[in-house]
Design a protein around this nucleic acid. Structure first.
Lengths: 105, 105
DNA sequence: TATATTTGTAAGCAATTACTTACGCAATTA
DNA sequence: TAATTGCGTAAGTAATTGCTTACAAATATA
């Protein structure tokens, strides 16, 4: 089973979970309350997130608090940022194109 | 069918395709040569990439050249970069922790 | 101690994914 | 005109995904 960060953040529910626990450390039930799907479904999402290293669990009694491992997101950042120069220069190219277009009117 | 950038870049083959055509505009066969999978498989990957707006096709005779729409990657960048402050500060926290650890020895 | 709460996990299921082979079509080349 | 080239797409398939309900285990509370 492939278990990398890219696959983990592909699911919109998991991205929402990340967003939720980015600000507050929550236990599983508290997370599940924010979604329409069942509690086990969230449990399985959390499992995916822990398996790829994006989330770590801190057990406290019967509660399992979820902490994001933000550094893992750096992997995604690194991949996407290598293209930043491309898309900014492309926007520049579009700009000049539009300017040229506007002038020709 | 969900067709967003996050789902598109979840597949490692598609990320490789992106990397390939980031530098040179290639036609489909030229792309497929770089992979072990069949030509139709690559054709289907390209379809996913075009459907989410990450790739645009320029037809030239029977050749279909693939151009990345880098701006689409800005969506991913925007999402991940919102957490950058978190992961850098977390690294800082780790640093101080390690320093404290080193001192206590 | 009995009950309630928080959770993992198993089993089942429909939908999706990533691939294959087979085919057809349009554009080029001989 | 006939053969070749570049490609999309259909059909089939095995594996994976995202969900459900049902159950069990551990911890907390009455």
């Amino acid at each position: 089973m492939r278990r990398d960060v890219f696959q983990a953040i592909a699911d919109p529910t998991r991205r929402e979970i990340i967003n939720l626990i980015a600000h507050n450390t929550l236990n599983l039930n508290a997370i599940a309350e924010n979604f329409d799907v069942s509690r086990p479904a969230i449990s399985q999402h959390i499992k995916v997130l822990t398996e790829c290293g994006l989330v770590e669990i801190t057990q406290q009694g019967r509660d399992r608090y979820c902490n994001i491992q933000f550094q893992k997101l750096a992997e995604v950042s690194k991949w996407v940022e290598q293209y930043r120069t491309f898309w900014t220069s492309k926007l520049d190219a579009l700009e000049t194109h539009l300017l040229k277009d506007a002038k020709s009117k």
